[in-house]
Design a protein around this nucleic acid. Sequence first.
DNA 1: AAAGATTGAACTCTCAATCTTA
DNA 2: TAAGATTGAGAGTTCAATCTTT
Lengths: 153, 153
Amino acid sequence: VPERAEPWDDPLITTFGMLIEAHAAVLADVSRDLEAISGVPLAWFEVMLRLARSPDHQLRMAELARQVSLSTSGLTRLVDRVEEAGYVERQSCPGDRRGAFAVLTPDGQDVLRRSLPRHLETLERRVASPLGADAAQLTELLRTLRDAKSPSG
Amino acid sequence: VPERAEPWDDPLITTFGMLIEAHAAVLADVSRDLEAISGVPLAWFEVMLRLARSPDHQLRMAELARQVSLSTSGLTRLVDRVEEAGYVERQSCPGDRRGAFAVLTPDGQDVLRRSLPRHLETLERRVASPLGADAAQLTELLRTLRDAKSPSG
DNA sequence: AAAGATTGAACTCTCAATCTTA
DNA sequence: TAAGATTGAGAGTTCAATCTTT
């Protein structure tokens, strides 16, 4: 009898599944290591890192939410927790009293500086080393995927 | 003055960030479309799809949990909800009365068969088309990342 | 009216503890 | 004693509604 491939064996399903599985596997390992290294959850670290990479170490709440892939509501509460720990602060936005900035504090910078060397070792071991010379291409393929707009977007 | 790159501009940070951002962007679009097409959340669809791809359309709870990247606890509750909707059933495991299978029901198969053509169109448009001929390589790079073992793993 | 941010309610997930069977 | 699955408690997220400012 001829083998008829089922529709759920389509390579598209496989590619999409790999995106989910690779993401879950890498994040589980990296976030476990990062918490051991820095003492803060990955989500906190991402917030602090985005601020460190921004001019004046600050970002509007909505823009920060976009960068860490959270709703503005989710970010409000995340910043609540990180602020409670003293690693970021809110500052009112001069010129638009509706807006607020999240700003990295000196304590937050210290956590980043102390943790980054070992965090980079983790990424080297878990991401760069397995990929070898293809790491740069993976980065570009993922960037393409991220920036591809959905039809309704 | 010479520009000294800050440690958080390391390419490793960028690659890792792209994995997070591409995953979030693609999943947001695909899950939105899928719910409009099939009426079920992506997590339900993933469960049904894994079962459809397995012998006898069934899988042990722990194995299914591993495949969908959930704790066994999380999967217990997810299967509760999908079973409530009638798309999967639990069956006791002959030979090991501790174990349980999750089994795809005929209703669950119907949902899959009806939704898959348009779901594949979504994946074509949102994933395959932007990547072009590089889609297969991305799949393999992601598989490499998924399977790379962590030092303590 | 609309935009930026926050809050309330509901949902989903994880960790630790529990229950049953091996 | 350990393995497979479930349950209770707690944490984090989203959607819709709200409040303030433009």
